[in-house]
């Protein structure tokens, strides 16, 4: 049996191959690799620790019990994040916790948003935002993320918290690339406005 350190140089695909061969230490390695990012994503989506714990567990159980159906031409991370995101979104929809977005054309360009945002963020708000320390901003941004609609939340978390490329986000969310970009820009616009509002209060 491999020691935990022996798994480190192996790619996700290789670890999955060992899991498919029935090695339980490979299952544990996949959990070790993904429990933190998967839990972080779900937690920031649902903003409830206990619930996030349940949904993260569901995600891993679902993925690991279907490990033989994994297709190595896709990234393992895309697969597990897709399941995790779906679990969170389904839950949010069921509980009707969606927040209404400032919806518009799905392909609106940032120029429109620039105008809109600039109208909403006056000079005073802008300077107020400048005074905030990055730590305070972190706490406020967590709160602001919770006010985004679920699709925007997934996009912004995967892009700017996890640093995933647009293409992978499109794969995870089953959305066209253009839609992913639009969602991310809109989410950023909303975060800007929400943060400015927080400072205005």
């Amino acid at each position: 049996m491999r020691t935990p350190a022996a798994w480190v140089p192996l790619s996700d695909q290789e670890v999955v191959r060992h899991a498919v061969m029935g090695r339980d230490s490979a299952y544990r390695e996949l959990i070790r690799r993904y429990q933190r990012p998967v839990f972080s994503l779900i937690y920031r989506m649902v903003r409830d620790r206990e619930l996030a714990e349940d949904l993260a567990q569901e995600t891993f159980v679902k993925v690991l019990n279907a490990i033989e159906s994994y297709r190595p031409e896709y990234k393992f991370s895309s697969w597990i994040f897709k399941i995790a995101n779906n679990a969170a979104i389904d839950h949010l929809r069921k509980r009707s916790l969606d927040t209404l977005s400032l919806d518009g054309s799905p392909h609106a360009q940032t120029a429109d948003a620039v105008e809109a945002t600039t109208l909403q963020i006056g000079d005073n708000r802008e300077s107020a935002l400048d005074e905030v320390t990055s730590r305070e901003l972190g706490a406020q941004i967590e709160e602001a993320i919770g006010n985004l609609r679920p699709e925007y939340r997934s996009c912004i978390l995967l892009r700017h918290v996890d640093g995933r490329p647009y293409e992978e986000i499109a794969e995870i969310l089953d959305l066209p690339l253009g839609t992913v970009k639009t969602y991310i820009h809109r989410a950023r616009n909303e975060l800007r406005i929400l943060l400015a509002d927080m400072h205005d209060e």
């Binding site: 933190r36 690991l64 901003l137 918290v161």
Partner: peptide
């Protein structure tokens, strides 16, 4: 500023014992 603040959000860990709890519900292929 928004992007920088998002990038430094700390990761969140599940409660200790997460892995054994998952493994208890997984049937090894």
């Amino acid at each position: 500023r928004v992007v920088d603040a998002l990038a430094i959000l700390p990761p969140v860990d599940p409660a200790p014992g997460f892995s054994p709890r998952v493994m208890a519900r997984v049937s090894i292929h």
